[in-house]
Design a protein around this nucleic acid. Structure first.
Lengths: 201, 201
DNA sequence: TTCATTTTTTAACATTTGTAAAATTTGTTC
DNA sequence: GAACAAATTTTACAAATGTTAAAAAATGAA
């Protein structure tokens, strides 16, 4: 076997960096958010958010990697989002419409998270224009990412989508098992194996 | 041939209704937006926004129906969004990141539109917290719709997706030619014809 | 290490969807 | 209504992906 390449360890991402990366906030506004934030840890395998519940919790990932998945009526799982250091974990339907969410969030590694109660954030949206615009930017950025994925799913075949992920986010493929990756790409694990075999040749 | 069922004509949607449906605004904030809005009309077939340009214009649809599409490197077209009365037309990439958009917008009917310059809206986001939250709500709602489509694309086969569209938005199928509908559903027109033939039996 | 478990790959075959071209229907214009 | 153009359906075949089952490989715990 070949010697393994040195693996770049994922860096912890501090909450201030996470907030500012979405949209630069004045210190005073940032402090208002930080006031409500607590740090928590959960082990690999923990289910952080459950589908069918109205979630009050928002998390930001300091360290670790997670997946969002939904279940079909036949109980098939579909992974439609991965989150890693620096990203926000939100049950969109709960956050936006205060209704039951459609996603489960499972931790794929031991995680260190920042916790924020969505009711507190909602309050801040009402009273601080910088935070309101921060929230707007967050949704807009997620929207573009999601729309681009929807488009790419159609323009590119499974093999191209895998290669794009491999070059764009190689750490995901290193850190996440291939069954989840296949689901995220919209194919079966068997298909993904075929694609990987093809590329090796 | 059977006598045709009476066709329900699409209603015009006034700009105040459009704005309030996204998120109820105080009259003063609404007036600030209305101040920058003008009414325009274009004929069927007109290309309202072009991919590869940084668009300054935002539109709201008073009357008519439009599609957003992207072109692949092989010049295949992909329709990924339909807009009708009450909806906002935005080049997301231009609006969010001030960068070249990936979408073309084509009018599928003669349209009456409300026009708003995005620079003016950006200004309002900075100075009016209600408008900032209105912008946040808009992005959040679009995000949920897009994410749900991404998930449905995987959980349901083409036939189910067509039936869902048929029951959920029958007017789209009545008003839009099937080639565009097929593209929107993520299949070819031939496949859509097969599905329609199957359903009739 | 060794064993048990989980993950990944491989194989054979079925099904779905795509491609290209022709036939049909629909709509428009004169 | 005739003639033309555009949209839709049908057909035959090809390619991609799914399904099921089994084998192989990798991983993790004792």
């Amino acid at each position: 076997m070949l010697p393994k390449a040195p693996i770049q360890l994922p860096q912890e991402t501090e909450i201030e960096t996470i907030l500012d990366t979405i949209y630069a906030l004045p210190n005073q506004s940032k402090a208002k958010i930080l006031h409500f934030i607590t740090e928590v840890r959960y082990p690999k395998g923990h289910i952080l958010l459950k589908a069918g519940t109205v979630e009050q919790s928002i998390y930001f990932i300091k360290k670790g990697i997670v997946r969002a998945y939904s279940c079909s009526s036949d109980n098939d799982e579909l992974t439609f989002w991965f989150g890693k250091e620096g990203q926000a974990i939100i049950s969109m339907k709960s956050y936006v419409e205060n209704r039951q969410g459609y996603e489960n969030i499972e931790l794929l590694e031991d995680c260190e998270l920042y916790h924020l109660n969505s009711e507190n954030l909602r309050q801040l949206f009402e009273e601080d224009i910088f935070i309101a615009n921060w929230g707007r930017k967050f949704a807009e950025q997620e929207l573009i990412r999601t729309e681009e994925r929807l488009i790419q799913r159609q323009f590119k075949n499974a093999s191209e989508r895998y290669k794009d992920l491999l070059s764009g986010q190689p750490d995901l493929i290193r850190r996440i098992q291939l069954g989840h990756i296949a689901s995220y790409l919209g194919i079966t694990q068997v298909s993904l194996s075929r694609i990987r075999a093809e590329i090796k040749i």
